[in-house]
């Protein structure tokens, strides 16, 4: 009986005791460079969207996501009531959503690079098992993936919605798989292109506000510049080449070309071959990568 009461007295103290375990060595797995690359990509994406930051950092991304969601949900809703009303076509999406995409990239890209430069966090990243090139590729991937969430995701949702509104959804999906394929191709190329443009501007300043301003102004100014140049210098056969100066115009012409459509405004004359717009985007993207490489990678 005495033993039993002792046990009941000791038990609560044993459970309530706080022990200082001292320092414990880490004995778990170490997953190396690829894991570090993934960790940096994921963390960069979350931080760019304002995760684990104050609510004010989340406002702009949320507004842009809501805007692009409305852009595809409203036409789908109308089409649900009026069969013949195809208000939005796949190839219209990028020209209609251009402002949203531009602001999104201008918001996200500076978050990827400027903060690390301004707060000198780069030295901590470079003391980890990654290379400088890994760092850049991770940031490029993070920007591209985030941009896909505002290009591929809404367009894929739009495609799915249109098929579900058909009389035979499964049949419609089978018949329109080529549209889905085109959506994926276009979204990947456009996201990588815009992401690279946004990042290359961000690589030259540590101030986010400056980077945002420069990206927005560059996107707007480039369209105006392309318009003026084709008016002043372009003969009818050469006009179309000036479209390559403007990201908005290049993307629009590329998307229209992929779906076999022609721009109705005809401002830049007869469009070039579609592959030229695609190749131009890829070349500009590679030039942006080379500039960032030159900016970040050289060793001491």
């Amino acid at each position: 009986m005495a033993d039993s009461s002792m046990t009941t007295q000791q038990t609560p103290r044993a459970f309530g005791e706080v022990y200082d375990r001292g320092y414990q060595h880490y004995t778990g797995p170490r997953l190396g460079r690829a894991h570090a690359f993934r960790a940096l990509t994921g963390y960069s994406m979350k931080r760019a969207l304002g995760a684990k930051k104050r609510w004010t950092a989340k406002v702009v991304p949320v507004i842009l996501y809501v805007a692009v969601a409305l852009l595809v949900i409203i036409p789908l809703g109308i089409q649900g009531f009026i069969d013949a009303a195809e208000i939005l076509q796949y190839w219209d999406f990028f020209s209609v959503a251009w402002l949203i995409l531009g602001v999104f990239v201008a918001t996200v890209a500076p978050e990827m690079l400027c903060g690390d430069r301004r707060e000198k966090t780069l030295i901590l990243y470079f003391s980890r098992p990654i290379t400088r090139l890994d760092y850049l590729m991770s940031k490029l991937l993070a920007t591209g993936l985030l941009t896909l969430t505002i290009t591929l995701v809404p367009l894929a949702f739009f495609w799915l919605g249109r098929q579900l509104l058909a009389d035979s959804p499964v049949r419609a999906m089978q018949d329109n798989l080529d549209d889905l394929f085109k959506i994926v191709i276009v979204s990947v190329v456009v996201s990588a292109y815009l992401g690279a443009l946004g990042l290359v501007v961000s690589a030259f300043t540590s101030r986010k506000a400056i980077a945002v301003g420069v990206i927005v102004v560059a996107f707007l100014f480039s369209s105006a510049l392309a318009g003026v140049l084709q008016e002043v210098f372009g003969n009818p056969d050469q006009k179309a080449w000036f479209a390559l100066i403007s990201p908005a115009r290049t993307i629009t012409e590329f998307v229209l070309g992929i779906w076999g459509q022609v721009n109705s405004d005809g401002a830049f004359g007869n469009p070039l071959e579609t592959w030229i717009y695609g190749a131009a985007m890829i070349v500009i993207m590679l030039i942006c990568c080379a500039i960032m490489y030159w900016r970040y990678v050289p060793e001491d």
Partner: peptide, 30 residues
């Protein structure tokens, strides 16, 4: 190896737990 630089190098807009955890992931820890 670990490295503690002399200069200021911390992100101001992150919590200590979040940033140190991220640095551990960057070193290969799950």
């Amino acid at each position: 190896v670990g490295y503690m630089p002399e200069a200021e190098c911390l992100p101001s807009n992150a919590t200590a737990a979040d940033f140190v955890g991220h640095m551990a992931e960057m070193s290969g820890l799950p």
